[in-house]
Computed example of a mutant assay.
Amino acid sequence: MKKDRDLKMQNYNISTYRYRELKYFCKQYREKQSQLRSITELSSPGFDSNGGGNKISDRTGNTALRRLQLEKELEIIEQSAMEAGSEFYPYILSNVVDGVRYEHLEVPMSRRAFFRMKLKFFGILSTKK
């Protein structure tokens, strides 16, 4: 199995470490989708278990905040892919999220054009995140 190489992102002023941060942010996409689907717990406020006196922990509020955060992170990835190539965004997502190689995507464009679009995706993602 070939090892993924880092993209050269100097034209977008993205360092190697920033690129890796964005890359692994995208790799968490399916995990975030799964977490979002599993967040269905709604409950009334309970008491704080840390022994902090009469503080109240609002689990419903915390759950709602977590849902919003996950939805926002997923939307950032999806919107960046759509802005990079509106009709080709499913291919971009498959590549950056699931690691499906270009050769297996059956993209109706050249390899070079696809990788330019992928670079553009990471540039857009970097500004949004």
Rank of each mutant, 00 (worst) to 15 (best):
L65P: 04
F88P: 05
E75G: 12
Q69K: 04
L93A: 04
T63D: 10
L70D: 14
T60R: 11
P90Q: 10
S86V: 09
A84L: 03
K72A: 11
E87Q: 13
R59K: 15
R59A: 15
M82F: 08
T60G: 08
S80V: 03
G61C: 10
A84G: 11
A84D: 07
R67Q: 15
Q69L: 08
Y91D: 03
I92S: 01
L65M: 10
R66V: 05
N62M: 06
L68N: 06
D98Y: 11
Q69A: 06
Q79S: 14
D98G: 07
Q69R: 08
L68T: 11
P90W: 07
L70Q: 08
E87D: 07
R67C: 14
L93T: 05
F88L: 14
N95V: 02
S80N: 00
E87K: 14
D98F: 07
E71L: 08
N95P: 01
E83Q: 10
R67F: 12
D98Q: 13
V96R: 01
R59L: 15
S94M: 05
N62L: 14
I76V: 04
G61A: 11
I77K: 00
A81E: 06
S80I: 01
R67H: 09
Q79I: 02
R66D: 12
K72D: 14
E78W: 08
E75Q: 14
E71D: 10
M82G: 05
T63Q: 14
I76C: 00
L93D: 02
I76S: 04
S86E: 12
E78G: 08
E71R: 09
G85C: 04
E71A: 14
L74G: 04
Y89V: 00
E78K: 11
G61W: 10
T63F: 12
G61L: 12
N62S: 14
L65A: 10
I77Y: 03
G61N: 09
E71P: 02
S86D: 09
K72H: 03
E78A: 07
T63W: 05
L68Y: 05
P90T: 13
L65G: 05
L70R: 08
A64F: 15
A64Y: 15
G61H: 07
I92M: 01
E71F: 04
L68F: 07
S86P: 02
V97H: 03
T60K: 11
R67P: 10
I92V: 02
T63R: 05
T63G: 13
Q79T: 15
D98I: 01
P90H: 04
S80H: 03
D98S: 12
L93I: 01
A81K: 07
E87G: 09
D98H: 13
L68C: 11
N95S: 09
Y89S: 06
F88W: 13
R59S: 14
E73W: 01
S86H: 11
K72T: 12
E83H: 03
E71I: 05
V96T: 00
E78R: 13
K72S: 15
I77G: 01
G61F: 08
M82N: 06
K72E: 14
N62E: 15
V96H: 00
E73Q: 07
E83G: 06
M82I: 04
R66M: 12
G85A: 10
S94G: 02
R66K: 13
M82H: 05
F88K: 05
R67L: 04
P90G: 10
R67M: 15
V96N: 00
S86W: 10
A84R: 03
R67W: 06
V96Q: 00
